[in-house]
Structures are given as structure tokens and as C-alpha cells.
Amino acid sequence: MGHGATAVSGQVGSDAGPDAHVRVAVLELAGVSRLHAGRPVWAPVDLRVASGSLCIVTGDNGSGKTTLLRLAAGLLRPSTGSRICTGRALYVRAGAGLRGVQTVAGAVATTAGLAGRRSAATAALAVLGLDGSATRRVGTLSAGERVRVTLAAALAAQPSLLCLDEPTGVLDERGVDDLLAVLRQLRAGGCAVLLATHQPAAVLAGADAHLHLAGGRVSLHDPVSA
């Protein structure tokens, strides 16, 4: 499939569901590009992401996935074009984001506290099955456990847009299931998710769309046919 944009864009409204929030665009990129060392990472992108949607982002190393996600999250300034995002956008790279010296419970509570949602930390820890390791230091966790803790923090912070960069690489099978469960919970609350991965097979089934980066272009595909 070369360029599936029209097929997917045709779904606006019809498949959007009865909830009002799913029709609302959380993120709108218009003619956005980013220069790296004087050259554009990809051709200008027009992208609308509805609230509650899950979009898988794939592409080879160096194709610009991280740049797209960081730009979508507002961490990078577009070199051209404009970005509109309603609500809070977070970028989380694998299991990074928390301070290593803090305990799991402390780090999640502190991070949620920055979003004014400190009280949501306990429930988020329970969802990720982290009650048992609440007193362990983040720095002593394995890579997969760190991803869980970071997801708990993101869940507690309740963003409008969550950009997850390569969370699946270090997760075991149960970890991926838990990831999908967290994503369902986040999306039910209206959070849109962009998930970059090199293992799309595990997550495409539940996705709404599939962005593929190749040859300096970003194209949209139907996740089912991919």
C-alpha cells in the first residue's frame, strides 16, 4: 500500500463513535517539517490526530520517528509549519523520564504531582502491578520494569497526547499486554497515543492508524492491512 491517506481520512465521523471526545482533534500539524543539519528530516507533514486514537509509528532507524514524536509532543520546534495541541502532551522514551534515586512510588507520585494529580499515583501503580516494588529505587529496576513505572507515571498524569518512543523493545509478552491495557485505559479517557516501535505486530491489532516513515516521507496506512 503506497499512500493510504485518503482511505483513512474517509473514516472521519462515520467510525468515530458516539462519544463526543473522539471526534476532537488533539493534535494538528500543518505543513510541519524539521531541519536537521540544514536538511529536512521528512517532507512537510499535515497530520490530525483525534482524541482517544492509537497510532503506531514505524520506520527504519534514522527515518525520523523520534523527531516526529518529540515534535508532536511540543519538545521540538517545527522548522516550518504550525502545531496546535489541546491539553498536555508528553513524550516518553522507553523507560526514561523518572529520577533514578527516587522510589517507584515516590517517582510516580512526584511526576503526577507536576500535573496536579498526585492522588492518582496509587491507582496507576496498581494498574501496572507495581504495588510490590513501590519502595524500590527506580535506578535499580530492569529496563522492562522501568517502562512499567514510566507508564504508571504517564497514566497518573493523564495527558491529552502521549508519545511513546520504543516502549516495546524491552517488554516481555505480559509487559506488552499490560502496555495495551494501559493504552486502552488512557484512550478511554480521551488520550491520543502515538507509539513508535520496531515490533508493530504486537500492537497494530488494536490501533486506529499506522504512520510509516520512509524515504523522507510520512505516510498513513490502515493498520489492519499492514
Binding site: L75, R93, R99
Partner: peptide, 15 residues
């Protein structure tokens, strides 16, 4: 230290 521990991006996103 935040950048070394990769916690800077999340902090910037939240605050």
C-alpha cells in the same frame, strides 16, 4: 543531571 538521567523531556512536557 536531568538530561543525563533522561528525565528532562517529561519534566518539560508536564510543566
Amino acid at each position: 543531571v536531568e538530561i543525563a538521567e533522561q528525565s528532562w523531556d517529561l519534566l518539560r512536557g508536564l510543566v
